[in-house]
Design a protein around this nucleic acid. Structure first.
Lengths: 257, 257
DNA sequence: CGCCATCTTGAGGTCTATCAATTTCAGTGG
DNA sequence: CCACTGAAATTGATAGACCTCAAGATGGCG
């Protein structure tokens, strides 16, 4: 058990956390487990499915139609919480799948609700987190509903780059074109053709799994990408110290089973 | 100012609210205003945009591409909170538009954060609410990404019926086919054709703005509609009384501007 | 009755899916 | 070092879904 775990770091970078909050959060990342690529962490219709904090690797949530059509709904990367949106539902609506080997920490829904109950500052931070997830989904609806293949792809690559967060224009894409297609509502064949088109436009260069964005500005313009929807505003997040005053002691035992 | 306002009623039906919680919530619905059909409640890129509780009528959130393409992201009806997902963001990503004449109550983001801070029971309820919104968006991504026009429409109509909540199979659809198309990522022309196809299949009957679903089960099967994603589980919601113990008094003044 | 928005219908074109063949490439074993 | 292998990517041809443009039909409303 490491003291400085991923989620803590990430939320701490938005609003400085109190020691109590750090402790509460790190409870959610206690028992890290390794899952191989392709592992199904949670299947559809599971009752009371656990949530997971993702420490390393890539994962995604998938929804299937009866005839086998697949749609990837979210792609997860380190320091994200997976399954937040299932908290209010009886049964899980999506499957959770590891895209690469991952390290993830399962924890029960109840634990999340406890955190919400015990810390107002974390409640607001987590609320903002899921609100942001919401904005990301809306952006994806826009992308899939109103853009053609090449534009979708341009947007997708830039979002990926943005989420990886480093300054290079080289993205190591650890999954294949079928996955990209399932995320963007198109076939792998069409992904291949659209990538070719981006290359021909001089916006992209690919060698194996490494995608190099040649002209980020032009690509952003082309795919109507604007990263505003990705960042949580830190001024809105309340600094932690002043809140904890109002939340004395652990209230764990009060949470109904 | 009515004591029994819409949001209160709705959340109360999920988990019984304490008197204090009812009071807190109803603060969000104090100042009701009437907006005519077509009114833009909030435009894109607005800073610190207020939220709204919708008391009557229909509204939607819209996103535009530079070249004018429109995507409707959410369609709102009575007793919903509009703009929840913008809480964590600097600027609003979507436009908020009244589809019919509506009665809505604007309130500042700060007020929502205050509610989160002052009541753990409401924090968990609101969290579950936004988590459900999330599930609805995911369902829509599935719908748009992986289904053809007729299937999308079937699913859309059933979701509409489900959300109206009454038992009849007659839906009064208060907006035109262009709106439906913008919500489903298709043109109004294609909506018209798809509706015709549903009629030909004997699943639907339309006369003016009233849509009559002839065979809900068949339509659900056809559009792969399953309403599970729409309902918030009530067992997860904590009953209010036992929580409020831990949230003494108003803490309003502690909220940073 | 006429006006206007909306809906319907037709024809042609574009985008994307499907099916299938070929190429590339990393890994494996000889 | 090189052939073999299987997964992934590319490419071509064809079909279907959906869009666009445009012309009528419908229907509410003054």
């Amino acid at each position: 058990m490491s003291d400085e775990s991923c989620i803590v770091e990430r939320l701490d970078s938005i609003a400085e956390l109190s020691e109590a909050d750090r402790k509460l959060l790190s409870e959610l990342e206690r028992d890290a487990q390794v899952y191989p690529a392709g592992a199904i962490l949670r299947s559809v219709d599971q009752f009371n499915a656990p949530l997971y904090t993702l420490r390393s690797g890539w994962a995604c949530s998938i929804r299937l139609l009866p005839d086998g059509r697949r749609q990837i709904l979210e792609i997860f990367r380190g320091s994200q919480i997976m399954g937040l949106n299932e908290v209010g539902l009886e049964q899980a609506q999506t499957e959770l799948v590891a895209l690469t080997e991952i390290e993830a920490c399962p924890f029960p829904q109840k634990a999340l609700l406890q955190v919400l109950a015990q810390s107002a500052s974390l409640a607001s931070l987590l609320f903002m987190t899921i609100a942001r997830d919401n904005a990301v989904l809306q952006e994806r609806i826009m992308n899939i509903g109103k853009k053609n293949g090449v534009e979708r792809l341009a947007h997708f690559l830039l979002e990926l780059k943005s989420r990886i967060g480093c300054d290079t224009n080289e993205i190591d894409v650890p999954f294949n074109q079928t996955v990209i297609g399932d995320a963007l509502g198109m076939t792998s064949v069409h992904v291949s053709r659209s990538l070719a088109q981006l290359r021909k436009l001089g916006l992209l260069d690919t060698s194996g799994k490494v995608f190099r964005i040649l002209d980020p500005a032009a690509l952003a313009d082309f795919g109507s990408f604007c990263p505003k929807y990705l960042s949580i505003r830190s001024d809105q997040a309340v600094s932690t110290a002043q809140w904890n005053v109002f939340r004395p002691g652990p209230t764990t035992q009060k949470v109904p089973a």
